[in-house]
Design a protein around this nucleic acid. Structure first.
Lengths: 194, 194
DNA sequence: GTCTATACGGTGATAGAC
DNA sequence: GTCTATCACCGTATAGAC
């Protein structure tokens, strides 16, 4: 069942990722989604803000699922993170550096202008952080250390994606992949249960 | 000598940093700068795009100077980077997470929509990267290794700033400070001349 | 639920007087 | 150099018919 509401949210996800909040007009979103134009405010009484909040939540779910899949596919978290970064680099490059980091642009644009959207972005990043953190705890780290390292992982991924897109090069993401994998492995092997 | 052109560029720097390109209107920039409104296209025949290009260049110079000062103030690059990150965290926190990372927002907004502005952002990041790289080479690293590590440093700073602003917490920047300093020190001590 | 029409303010940019 | 007036377009949001 693909409701008009669903199509609008998914289209908004892509447009916000590539263009950002202010550059993505309501008309553009509706037209690209193929959803009926007249029922926009029927499905989203909160207007553009509500669409963005829903899109950010959707982007967070999608991202968290991808992260989980990569982390679950390898016996060691450092290898999971490394392949995740390589996959991100592949996707960013494949899109011609037009896509990648579905949250960062909206997060920055709205940090000072929309409390509801900022709240959604915070929840999104905290959710993704928790996925990394749980995996690190399962590998033997205590909660505080896992949370700290998970936050660093998310920060590094976002920064490397930002630089890769801006510089039109996968190098920042590839550098980050090696750096993160090395750091994670070191922290795990220095743990009591390592 | 503070020409109207100069005032406009500096005002644009601040507004672009806080709100981004699409959210900062020409009227807003002119009014906030106190510059005469009628001479906008006399000083900037290229319109809004030219203002943004100039502002990005100015932001890059300012940032590079701050980085250089911190790196020059310490005998070891890892300590310079650590205090730089702490200074950034202080500034971001002090602004109420409204400012920080003068380039990232414009860089992301324009990566797919304005070639001239993207070019300015690329030059800006490359310039800042070279400041780190030169300091690492002075500490004994070879050029390739220094460039790689410098790119990672820039990526990590940008990502941590992004997360700190979004989450309204200095923690991402503080985590990044410790991890980067540790990583840099390790790389330097494993070098031949370390 | 979906449509069309429209209100209302804003945008970047230009023209021409001074 | 600076001003005012104005352009054509776009934005979000709403009203009312069906």
């Amino acid at each position: 069942m693909t409701t008009p509401r669903e199509k609008i949210i998914q289209t908004a996800c892509n447009l916000l990722e590539q263009q950002g909040y202010h550059a993505s007009g309501l008309n553009e979103i509706i037209q690209a989604s193929g959803a009926p134009k007249g029922s926009l405010y029927h499905y989203f009484p909160g207007g553009k803000t509500e669409i963005a909040v829903e899109a950010v939540g959707r982007a967070a779910e999608t991202t968290a699922r991808i992260v989980e899949e990569h982390l679950a596919a390898y016996a060691d978290p450092d290898e999971g993170v490394r392949t995740l970064l390589e996959e991100i680099a592949r996707r960013v490059e494949e899109s011609g550096y037009a896509a990648g980091g579905p949250l960062m642009l909206v997060a920055l644009e709205t940090v000072n202008s929309s409390e509801p959207i900022n709240h959604a972005c915070r929840q999104a990043y905290r959710h993704i952080q928790s996925v990394f953190s749980r995996r690190l705890m399962a590998a033997g780290m205590n909660e505080a250390a896992a949370d700290s390292l998970a936050l660093l992982i998310v920060s590094t991924i976002e920064g490397a994606t930002l630089l890769s897109r801006t510089l039109h090069s996968p190098q920042p993401l590839r550098e980050a992949a090696g750096f993160l994998a090395e750091h994670i492995r070191r922290h795990l092997t220095s743990q009591p249960g390592g």
